[in-house]
């Protein structure tokens, strides 16, 4: 598994770093992901029943928000690109990319599965950063940033592993296995959703273009854009109750 995964990370990484504007886009995406994680971990801190874990979650959240700032600075250092900067402040994109769900992850998952999630995701991130650095894909400054961040990820992996071990020791090994499975399955499902959504968007763009050319064109001569300035407007003739119910 390890070798296949590392090869995959290497291939995908080679593409991601080399595509036009690749480093900036990656840094922007990482920054968003870290910010989203920070929110999720704070939400976990607020909701957890395990009061002994609250302080750990706090430090985890602080790490994530610091990482978000580091990546953000890399974006600014690597290039002042319209789109990358816009992506950082784009309100909808966190949710659109599935980084933030409708409810905080902790609410969707519960304690055990959340810890399993932290363990799986942080391990993958660590591995990803290591492959990038080992193969010298980023520039030296970014490598330094990634290595510094990797040290924090090790802390996140170790605490989540320790907690999962505690569950196992308490005889809940089956639950831990199930949670790890669900986390991994969900990641695959979400990757599938992202891929198919992207594919779907591309295909639908084509046929909507066709629709535009065929169905919209004939009406063009009839449509005109109004001029500016004030127009007097009368009250709606409908009774107020009817007006209030209408969507138009």
């Amino acid at each position: 598994m390890g070798i296949i995964r590392r090869t995959w990370i290497r291939l995908a990484g080679a593409w991601a770093w080399r595509r036009p504007n690749g480093p900036v886009r990656l840094m922007a995406a990482f920054s968003q992901a870290e910010r989203g994680s920070s929110y999720d971990v704070i939400a976990a801190l607020e909701r957890t029943e395990r009061r002994d874990l609250r302080r750990t979650y706090l430090f985890h959240a602080l790490d994530e928000s610091r990482h978000a700032r580091i990546f953000r600075r890399r974006v600014q250092a690597l290039g002042r690109q319209d789109r990358a900067e816009a992506a950082l402040v784009d309100a909808g994109s966190l949710r659109a990319t599935g980084i933030i769900g409708e409810a905080p992850l902790f609410e969707q998952m519960g304690e055990l599965e959340f810890l399993a999630f932290v363990y799986v995701v942080e391990s993958l991130a660590l591995e990803q950063f290591q492959v990038y650095c080992d193969h010298g894909m980023p520039d030296p400054d970014t490598i330094a940033a990634l290595r510094a961040i990797a040290d924090d990820e090790k802390f996140h992996i170790s605490y989540s592993r320790r907690e999962l071990e505690k569950y196992r020791a308490a005889g809940r090994g089956a639950e831990v296995r199930a949670a790890l499975f669900r986390v991994r399955a969900r990641r695959i499902w979400q990757a599938w959703l992202r891929l198919s959504r992207r594919l779907g968007d591309a295909v639908s763009t084509l046929w909507l273009w066709a629709l535009y050319l065929v169905c919209v064109a004939p009406f063009r001569p009839l449509a005109r854009v109004e001029g500016g300035g004030w127009r007097t407007r009368d009250a709606d003739p409908r009774p107020i109750a009817e007006f209030a119910r209408a969507q138009a």
């Binding site: 599938w192 959703l193 198919s196 959504r197 594919l199 779907g200 968007d201 295909v203 639908s204 046929w207």
Partner: peptide, 8 residues
């Protein structure tokens, strides 16, 4: 659902 736009 994810494939909606692709199929039609």
């Amino acid at each position: 659902a994810p494939f909606v736009y692709a199929v039609i």
